[in-house]
Amino acid sequence: MNGTTGAGRKPTIRDVAAAAGVSHGTVSRVINGGHWVSPVAREAVEQAIVATGYTANHAARSLATGRSNSLAFLLTEPQHLLFADPTFALLLRGATEALAQRSMTLVLMIADTAAERANVERYVRAGHVDGVLLISSHESNPLLGSLVAAGIPTVCTGVPLGDRAHVPTVSVDEQESAREMTRYLRGRGHRRIAVITGPNDTPGGRHRLEGFRDEMGDLFDPDLVEQDVYSSDAGAAAMARLLERAPDIDAVFAASDVMAVGAIAALRRSGRRVPEDVAVAGFDDSGLAATHDPPLTTMRQPWSDISSAMVDMVLQVIGGSEPDPLVLPTTLVVRETA
Score class of each variant (00 low, 15 high):
residue 8 G to F: 06
residue 8 G to H: 05
residue 13 I to K: 10
residue 20 A to W: 12
residue 25 G to E: 13
residue 26 T to M: 15
residue 29 R to C: 10
residue 29 R to Q: 11
residue 30 V to H: 08
residue 31 I to V: 15
residue 32 N to G: 10
residue 33 G to S: 09
residue 35 H to A: 14
residue 36 W to T: 07
residue 39 P to E: 15
residue 39 P to Q: 12
residue 41 A to G: 01
residue 49 I to L: 13
residue 50 V to C: 02
residue 51 A to N: 12
residue 51 A to E: 15
residue 62 S to Y: 01
residue 62 S to F: 01
residue 63 L to M: 15
residue 64 A to I: 02
residue 69 N to H: 12
residue 69 N to I: 03
residue 70 S to N: 07
residue 71 L to W: 09
residue 74 L to W: 11
residue 76 T to N: 09
residue 80 H to V: 07
residue 88 F to C: 03
residue 93 R to P: 01
residue 94 G to T: 03
residue 95 A to M: 13
residue 99 L to N: 02
residue 107 V to T: 14
residue 110 I to S: 13
residue 118 A to S: 11
residue 118 A to G: 04
residue 121 E to A: 13
residue 122 R to V: 00
residue 129 V to L: 03
residue 136 S to H: 04
residue 140 S to C: 07
residue 143 L to V: 06
residue 145 G to W: 12
residue 145 G to H: 07
residue 146 S to Q: 03
residue 146 S to W: 00
residue 152 I to N: 04
residue 173 D to M: 04
residue 173 D to I: 01
residue 175 Q to E: 14
residue 176 E to R: 13
residue 178 A to P: 00
residue 181 M to S: 03
residue 184 Y to W: 15
residue 185 L to E: 09
residue 185 L to W: 05
residue 192 R to A: 13
residue 192 R to P: 00
residue 192 R to N: 12
residue 192 R to I: 06
residue 195 V to W: 05
residue 198 G to K: 06
residue 200 N to D: 15
residue 200 N to Y: 13
residue 203 P to K: 04
residue 208 R to S: 01
residue 210 E to K: 07
residue 210 E to Y: 14
residue 211 G to W: 04
residue 216 M to W: 03
residue 221 D to V: 05
residue 226 E to R: 15
residue 231 S to W: 02
residue 234 A to P: 00
residue 236 A to M: 07
residue 236 A to N: 02
residue 240 A to S: 15
residue 247 P to K: 01
residue 255 A to P: 00
residue 256 S to F: 06
residue 264 I to C: 11
residue 269 R to Y: 09
residue 269 R to F: 05
residue 270 S to D: 13
residue 270 S to F: 03
residue 273 R to Q: 14
residue 273 R to H: 08
residue 275 P to Y: 10
residue 280 V to S: 12
residue 282 G to S: 07
residue 286 S to F: 02
residue 286 S to E: 01
residue 287 G to D: 11
residue 289 A to F: 12
residue 291 T to K: 09
residue 291 T to C: 09
residue 297 T to D: 06
residue 298 T to Q: 10
residue 306 I to M: 15
residue 309 A to H: 10
residue 316 Q to I: 04
residue 321 S to R: 06
residue 326 L to C: 06
residue 334 V to S: 03
residue 335 R to N: 05
residue 336 E to N: 07
